[in-house]
């Protein structure tokens, strides 16, 4: 199918209206990342729909603005406590009662917390230094053993994940044990992720991406064990924020491969 036919297939409209199936959504997002004209068609279509939705604009009741603002202040409370000095005017009750005392207690707590934190950090550092050498050795040995087991077991399927888009030069090997369904991954050929980011593996099951785990940073192991995946038609890897995301960022897809 050429791009014009694809654009006029009705898929974009279904997508924008929110009635495309997960498989279709996935497919379209992939197409949009590869073909700028598809991406443009989507945003044009969406903009028209949103212009239409905007025609329904209606002024909310007059008191809503203040009501929402005060709701936002309440909900913000836990997050802004650490900035109490800056926002004292937002806490009229404690301020008018005993402002000096509240602030000084707060400083005392903070000082105690800092001392505890530093003590704990020093201890951790000492322990870490002591343990580091032996741990590294063990991890290295374990990884090698895992790798050997993987390559030798007849139950393990090797699945190459080919680079997508700008990352077409990269290929990643995924190993899937068809018996116990364990998934192993080697990302040594992918660029080191930027600070705050992490690679995340997705199993595509019936068109839906399932989180198959994030690839640990700073690991010396050549192969990492991911989540157990019972079945999947595809695997893909995206670059996500550290700790992983609930849904894959399709514009940050690095590699993908069919099972």
């Amino acid at each position: 199918m050429n791009i014009e036919d694809y654009i006029s297939s009705g898929l974009i409209e279904a997508y924008v209206l929110g009635v495309a199936s997960p498989e279709e959504m996935h497919e379209l997002e992939l197409m949009a990342s590869k073909h700028p004209e598809v991406a443009t068609a989507i945003s044009e279509c969406r903009e028209q729909l949103e212009q239409y939705a905007t025609l329904y604009s209606q002024a909310p009741p007059d008191d809503m603005k203040e009501q929402i603002w005060s709701a936002l202040q309440q909900k913000e409370l836990p997050a802004t406590i650490s900035n109490q000095n800056k926002h004292t005017d937002a806490y009229p009750i404690s301020d008018t009662n005993k402002p000096g005392r509240v602030v000084s207690m707060y400083h005392l707590y903070r000082a105690v917390a800092v001392v505890l934190l530093i003590t704990s950090m020093v201890f951790n550092l000492l322990l870490l230094m002591k343990d580091r050498a032996s741990k590294q050795e063990l991890a290295g040995l374990k990884a090698e053993q895992e790798k050997m087991n993987l390559l030798l077991s007849p139950a393990v399927k090797s699945i190459p994940l080919a680079g997508v888009g700008a990352h077409s030069a990269n290929t990643v090997m995924l190993f899937w044990n068809t018996q116990n369904k364990e998934v192993y991954l080697s990302l040594k050929d992918l660029p080191t992720p930027p600070i705050g980011k992490q690679y995340q593996l997705w199993a595509i099951v019936d068109g839906k991406p399932i989180n198959a785990g994030v690839y640990a940073l700073n690991s010396h192991a050549l192969i990492q064990k991911m989540k157990v995946i019972d079945r999947a038609q595809m695997f893909a890897i995206t670059l996500e924020k550290q700790g992983g995301s609930d849904q894959p960022t399709l514009t940050e897809m690095y590699v993908a491969g069919k099972v």
Binding site: A53, T54, Y56, Q58, M64, I68
Partner: peptide
Amino acid sequence: AGALYGVIIKILDKQEVASDILQEVF
């Protein structure tokens, strides 16, 4: 607020509920 409120009203068609949802959305 007007656009979001309009869409919420369009979906729910109930003013009292729409105000609550608008707050939740903000």
